[in-house]
Amino acid sequence: MQRVNMIMAESPGLITICLLGYLLSAECTVFLDHENANKILNRPKRYNSGKLEEFVQGNLERECMEEKCSFEEAREVFENTERTTEFWKQYVDGDQCESNPCLNGGSCKDDINSYECWCPFGFEGKNCELDVTCNIKNGRCEQFCKNSADNKVVCSCTEGYRLAENQKSCEPAVPFPCGRVSVSQTSKLTRAETVFPDVDYVNSTEAETILDNITQSTQSFNDFTRVVGGEDAKPGQFPWQVVLNGKVDAFCGGSIVNEKWIVTAAHCVETGVKITVVAGEHNIEETEHTEQKRNVIRIIPHHNYNAAINKYNHDIALLELDEPLVLNSYVTPICIADKEYTNIFLKFGSGYVSGWGRVFHKGRSALVLQYLRVPLVDRATCLRSTKFTIYNNMFCAGFHEGGRDSCQGDSGGPHVTEVEGTSFLTGIISWGEECAMKGKYGIYTKVSRYVNWIKEKTKLT
């Protein structure tokens, strides 16, 4: 034993070699072989497995989906700052455009905790909710729209109204504003409101030439003092309507412009014939205590009207009353817009006519005020429907199939267009061939041609 100890002390290297040989010859039971080890760690190889990531292109799944990435790591994937920024906006807080917040056709661009709407022409605001041009839906104005110097929408209202708090709607500024039905039992019968379409306001006024200088022999019209197929109006439903009495009662109609003036057809009036105007009328054979009678003290036909040349060209006249009318729910003026808007309103496509005229061709006159909704007829169809001249200051309205029309005794009465609950004068009943005849239409004086003249002559002093 002493000898062994001496050998170990003198030859430590020998001992180490012996131990190493023993270990190498022993069977290893701690580690699995290569094949079995792979069965336990069965993990798919990654895209760049075996390579240094710093030297390969980034992978979106590896960089940002398996674990949260930084902007720089995302930049490695896209290799483009702009594309990385677009991805980053949604990656950080989701897609803010998912709810489609942009209105009126706006395009949404996502941002971090926010979004941006790219608005089409005519709109602005956070969600493109603000109209900035009158060309689109009248700028959301209830009545009139004008573009300011910086191309912003400025709404306005006709006389007797003021802008509401929203700067879009119009509200009454006087007790009985024009064009409004205020009798409670008839307010439910107000005709369907007309909503502004998209309009090209630059070209809204037709490029028409008034044929002022045409000389033409007097034409022989049949029954051209021209509501057939209409309905009984309720008291106060058309408070701007008046009836004219002269040699015979209810020979023509008219509309209240203001307390002192009536507008009617020029062919209705004769110099030297006494005319009485009755406002607030409903049943011409009954006294309903809503009527107001006034005498006409002055007749002003349009300066281009000449019955000797043509009885229905420039067929418009103004009547001055001896005493002002007292405005109330049964006696209310009709609204008159400017030339541009009167023309736009007419193009809405349908209007209402009213009167006490004959209820059928050569038949009896109506006792109760009649009204009828009539569609506008395109000019080409209008011209083809008659052998008589249709001037540019006239328009056609009615039904091709016949059966409904204005008729004798309705002449001078109103053709009105309702705009968001307020009625505007767009025409004056003038003439036609018979009444409600198939293929024939009622012919009306186009008020847009005469609004400046009306307003100039009827100013209240």
Results as ranks from 00 to 15, higher is better:
400 H>C: 06
254 G>D: 00
116 E>M: 03
23 L>G: 02
242 V>Q: 00
160 G>K: 02
268 C>T: 00
411 S>M: 15
144 F>V: 02
7 I>F: 09
111 D>N: 08
317 A>P: 01
299 I>Y: 08
441 Y>F: 09
126 K>L: 10
308 A>C: 06
396 C>R: 02
57 Q>A: 11
7 I>T: 11
5 N>E: 08
444 Y>G: 02
235 P>G: 05
283 N>T: 12
107 S>D: 09
377 V>Y: 02
361 H>D: 15
339 K>T: 10
332 T>C: 05
309 I>V: 14
62 R>C: 04
372 L>C: 11
405 D>W: 08
358 R>N: 09
79 E>P: 15
38 N>D: 12
301 P>A: 09
159 E>L: 06
393 N>S: 14
114 S>F: 04
141 C>Q: 00
241 Q>C: 05
248 V>P: 09
339 K>E: 12
402 G>Y: 12
290 T>I: 06
296 V>T: 03
267 H>L: 02
418 E>L: 09
342 T>G: 04
377 V>G: 02
13 G>R: 06
353 V>H: 04
406 S>Q: 11
209 T>H: 12
111 D>T: 06
272 G>I: 07
419 V>F: 13
235 P>K: 10
158 T>E: 04
82 E>V: 09
374 V>I: 08
54 E>F: 06
337 A>P: 03
32 L>Q: 14
288 E>N: 06
269 V>N: 01
312 Y>A: 05
391 Y>T: 12
119 C>S: 00
330 Y>K: 05
461 T>V: 11
383 L>V: 08
340 E>C: 03
11 S>N: 10
288 E>R: 06
238 F>L: 07
431 W>N: 12
229 G>F: 14
411 S>W: 13
96 Q>T: 06
110 D>T: 11
67 E>P: 05
429 I>E: 10
418 E>H: 08
438 K>I: 06
459 K>C: 11
106 G>M: 00
157 C>D: 01
99 S>L: 09
233 A>K: 05
116 E>L: 03
262 I>M: 02
59 N>P: 06
411 S>V: 15
451 V>T: 05
16 T>W: 13
43 R>P: 13
25 S>L: 13
213 N>K: 05
388 F>K: 14
211 L>K: 08
118 W>L: 02
403 G>F: 09
388 F>Y: 13
4 V>W: 09
294 R>M: 02
263 V>G: 00
340 E>A: 13
421 G>W: 02
190 T>E: 08
306 N>T: 03
414 P>H: 14
16 T>F: 14
239 P>V: 02
429 I>T: 12
128 C>D: 00
368 V>T: 14
430 S>R: 03
235 P>R: 10
200 D>E: 09
